[in-house]
């Protein structure tokens, strides 16, 4: 089973890297860019086939390691 975990910065947390990318896009002439926030994607392969069990396992992974919930949110997608 394949899963994707997306980790993003919480609203209100300053993202200097996103800001720099935003500036660079503006410099390339992409004038419509309002703002950019940078995040992380983890593609995880799991051996089981129970989607609900996988989801709770992935949530535990996010809480324990993949995300720092002080500053980050996470979303889980299971294929």
């Amino acid at each position: 089973m394949k899963a994707r975990v997306i980790v993003t910065l919480k609203n209100g947390v300053l993202d200097p890297q996103g800001k720099a990318i935003e500036g660079a896009l503006g410099g390339l002439g992409f004038d419509d860019v309002g703002s950019v926030r940078q995040g992380k994607v983890f593609d995880v392969e799991l051996s089981g086939s129970d989607k609900e069990a996988a989801r709770s396992e992935l949530e535990a992974m996010c809480e324990k390691l993949l995300a720092n919930t002080v500053i980050e949110n996470y979303a889980i997608e299971i294929a």
Partner: peptide, 11 residues
């Protein structure tokens, strides 16, 4: 300890 240490504002 509370809080987090993020990328320097000046990158």
């Amino acid at each position: 300890l509370p809080g987090a240490l993020m990328r320097n504002a000046g990158l």
